[in-house]
Simulated assay, not measured.
Amino acid sequence: MRLRTTTQRQQSRRYPGLVVGAVAVLALTACTGSAEDAADDDGGDSTPVAAAGSNDEEGDMVTIGFSAPAADHGWMGAITENVRDLAEQYPDIDLQIAEGTNDVNLQISQVETFINDEVDAIVLLPFDGAAMTPIALEAMEAGIPVINVDREFDDPNAARVTVLGDNYGMGVSAGQYMCEQFGDKPDAVIAEIAGIDSLPLTQDRSQGFEDALAECDLEVSNRVAADFTVEGGEEEAAKLLQAAPKIDGLWNHDDDQGVGVLAAIENAGRDEFVMVGGAGSANAMREIQDDSGVLKATVIYPSTQGADGVKLARLLLQQKAMSDLDEVEVPRTIQLYAPVVTSDNVDQYIDSAFES
Rank of each mutant, 00 (worst) to 15 (best):
S303W: 04
M285Y: 04
G309D: 09
L315I: 02
G293N: 14
I288C: 07
P302L: 06
D308H: 13
T304R: 10
N283K: 10
A313E: 00
Q305E: 13
L317K: 01
G293F: 12
M285N: 04
Q318H: 07
L295R: 04
L317H: 04
N283Y: 08
I300V: 13
A313N: 05
R314D: 01
L312T: 03
A284K: 01
N283C: 09
A284M: 06
T304W: 06
A313M: 04
E287R: 14
G309F: 09
L295T: 03
Q319L: 15
Q305P: 01
Q319N: 15
M285W: 04
D291Y: 10
A282D: 12
D308A: 13
M285F: 08
P302K: 09
L312G: 04
V299W: 00
Q305W: 06
T298C: 10
G280Q: 12
S303P: 10
D308L: 14
Q305V: 10
L312F: 11
L317Q: 01
L312S: 07
A297P: 00
N283Q: 08
Q305Y: 12
T298P: 01
I300S: 05
M285E: 03
Q319D: 15
A297Q: 01
A282V: 11
V294D: 05
T298N: 13
K311Y: 05
K296L: 13
M285K: 09
L315E: 01
